[in-house]
Amino acid sequence: MKRTLAVIFAGLLSATPLAAQSVDDFPSKPMTYIIPFNAGGESDISARFQQAEWEAVTGQQVVIQYQPGAGGAQAWSQLNSLPGDGYTIMGINMPHTVLQPLAGSAGYKTEDLTPVNYFHYTPNAIFVTKDSEFKTLADLVDYAKANPGLVTFAGSGSNSANNLAAVQFNELADINTTYVPFSGTGPSITAILGGQTTAGFNYATSGVSQGDAMRMLAVASDERLPAFPDVPTFKELGYDIVGGAYRGVAVPSLTPEPIRQKISDIVTEINHRPDFIEKMESAGFVLTDIGYDKMDDFVAARIKEYTAGAKALGIIK
């Protein structure tokens, strides 16, 4: 009932010329940007980079809030109950928003969410410590072939981008390794640095924050990363693995079309600012340009890819 009223009310609002005009002024007050994860992760850091540019682009500030829980599902399941005036936006991630509904009661469906712009991704990468005996990916694969099951990969979470990549890699390289899930990037990097596991499947961003302490053996991007010109891609080495975690901005479903487009434009504009590009790329993020107009195709392609991945993970039969 309340929902219906809200829909009618929002409809009335957007029908008035006053509201139509407000798209041009948008935003006219500070915006709230909800991150569905804890502080300090890749989602937070990239949003903080955006925050530093936000005022210059929109004339208004953006406030970052954290609503962690259930790997993001806690926040995403509430996204559509938030006001659809455009002033509340939320970070959104792939493959999370595809895999979670497939895995079971996540409280939302992939198609319920309204992403307006996916602005970057962090490619998966294999890491070992700097003292590791494995200098190249071939060394690691040879060792894994000679010792089935012995190689352990630390990664962030179960049914996550890292987990998916580890399963994919097992399949493509025809090896048998063990994936050990940790509660986040921080703990899994700690395990790699401490030599608790043989190697790690993490995001390329960790290669920057750890400097020389870790060696990246391969990265799952299309082309080599500017920050790591010497690290080969999986593709170059003959494994067709491209991907990682995609991050974007979503809005509640009540948000009117012009505002959705406007928010997408804001994110795209920030993506083109030199300072932002410099910070993101040197931190190991790969910028993407998937605005609101390209969103449907992008999401459809990802759903197809991750549904296949979910079968490999054993989430769905």
Binding site: A39, G40, D44, R48, A52, T190, S209, Q210, K279
Partner: peptide, 20 residues
């Protein structure tokens, strides 16, 4: 190590990164 010990540490880490 760049590994936050606690949640407030994680936010402070993010603030440092934004500062370049």
């Amino acid at each position: 190590l760049g590994i936050p010990g606690t949640p407030p540490d994680a936010i402070i880490l993010g603030a440092l990164l934004v500062q370049g």
